[in-house]
């Protein structure tokens, strides 16, 4: 078992995953920045300093070497950066650019768990009746029906499609229980995007995403990003709904052991409903990710 690291504490083992170091990662929410102010955060065991200049531009550098400037981009209401030279561009989500959507950064929450455990929980429907009781699910309607999983050969993203689940209160816009259609997309080892039926428009999907900043192999800060078709509810109501949901997940995640995700399929006992998790774990193995996982022997 790996030693635990307090939030913000540096863990040298964390920075050694070359695959993770070449990825863009979320650092801080834009709305948490103030012009002229400096802040710092740990990414993959490396402490970074960030500054928003008077003109609104953001810069990021290593705390231990201010000449080592890291690349920066703003996307999804978040500042993203990378420890090495980015091996790939940050994934795109066209829905987030649609002008008629409500764009909400719903919160940033620290969780004592690995990023892959948090992603896998986000991909999981079977826990809705037990963890999100009377909101995203309710006993006795517990069945996870057969759904489809594939890895898109062009983008190398994991997709789960044709997912349906009965939900009492699927969203802030819900007035009654409904069979909700879900599509899940994993475009990044520590990020996951959900496309969900909206009561507002049958032909379009609400977009709800979880972007994790890996601090240490067993510590993350999770950003919740939403692009919704919801003209009525206030940002505060939308945030409250998402924080309620995530607040229910957090104690489950923090009681999960081991905190790093085991990639050997024999270590935990999966079932058919875990099909997307099985694919996700194999995909992480193929990518060669080592941070936040226990690699298969």
């Amino acid at each position: 078992m790996s030693p635990t690291v307090s939030p913000g504490e540096l863990d040298e083992r964390a920075g050694v995953d070359p695959v993770a170091r070449g990825l863009w990662h979320p650092l801080v929410a834009v709305h948490d920045l103030r012009r002229g102010q400096q802040g710092s955060a740990v990414l993959l065991g490396v402490r970074l300093d960030y500054t928003m200049a008077g003109d609104g531009s953001v810069s990021v550098c290593r705390s231990d070497d201010h000449d080592d400037r890291r690349p920066v981009q703003i996307a999804y209401e978040i500042v993203w950066t990378c420890l090495d030279e980015p091996a790939t561009p940050l994934f795109e989500t066209p829905e987030a650019l649609e002008t008629d959507r409500r764009i909400v950064h719903a919160g940033t929450i620290g969780v004592h768990v690995s990023a892959p455990r948090a992603v896998e929980n986000f991909l999981d429907m079977a826990h809705f009746p037990y963890v999100h009781t009377d909101i995203l699910g309710a006993e006795p309607f517990t069945e996870v029906e057969e759904y489809s999983v594939h890895v898109d050969p062009d983008t190398n993203e994991v997709w789960a499609t044709d997912c349906v689940f009965w939900q009492p209160v699927a969203a802030t816009t819900s007035t009654e229980g409904q069979m909700t259609d879900y599509r899940y997309r994993v475009p990044h080892p520590y990020c996951v995007v959900l496309y969900k039926t909206t009561p507002v428009d049958p032909d379009r999907f609400d977009v709800i995403a979880l972007f994790c900043r890996p601090i240490a192999p067993d510590r993350i800060e999770a950003h919740m990003f939403l692009a919704l078709l919801d003209a009525d509810n206030s940002d505060a109501d939308i945030r409250r709904f998402q924080l309620t949901i995530f607040g229910q997940d957090k104690p489950i995640l923090e009681n999960q052991f081991p905190k790093e995700l085991p990639l050997d399929p024999r270590v935990e006992t999966p079932i058919r409903a875990d099909k997307v998790a099985i694919a996700y774990r194999r995909w992480l193995s193929d990518l060669g990710i080592t941070h936040g996982v226990i690699p298969a022997a």
Partner: peptide
Amino acid sequence: LPSSCEKGACGT
């Protein structure tokens, strides 16, 4: 032969 879930999910 080792086995675990016996439902075709774990690959054991």
